[in-house]
Amino acid sequence: MTLTPYLIVAALLFAIGLGIALTRRNAILVLIGIELMLNAANLNLIAFWRFGPHPELMTGMLFALFSIAVAAAEASVGLGLVIAWYRHSKTTDLDEMARMKG
């Protein structure tokens, strides 16, 4: 195996995640899209760690670990915000959340 196929899968995953984030109305699905993009980045990190010149330094792997932790924090805060917003306005529709435009 070589590096390029993994990077192509990661690029496709990133594109799908971006597509979800840009096209879906529901705020939770937008968060899902962001999670997918983060995961694509993680796959890149692991693939570069494995096929890079210095795998014994574990840089890519540890970066991926930190990235997983940050993604978990992001998901919890994001979903907390969505639930708070839902309680306030009874919708999770992003097009209707534009009310703050004034």
Partner: peptide
């Protein structure tokens, strides 16, 4: 790819926490 620890943490964090959190949020909203 040989990243055992990261793979298992991925399952633990994403399936055990993030996916569950997402479905809970979907049901709550």
């Amino acid at each position: 790819l040989g990243a055992q620890f990261v793979g298992l943490s991925q399952i633990l964090v994403y399936i055990g926490a993030v996916a569950i959190l997402v479905v809970f949020a979907i049901l709550l909203t």
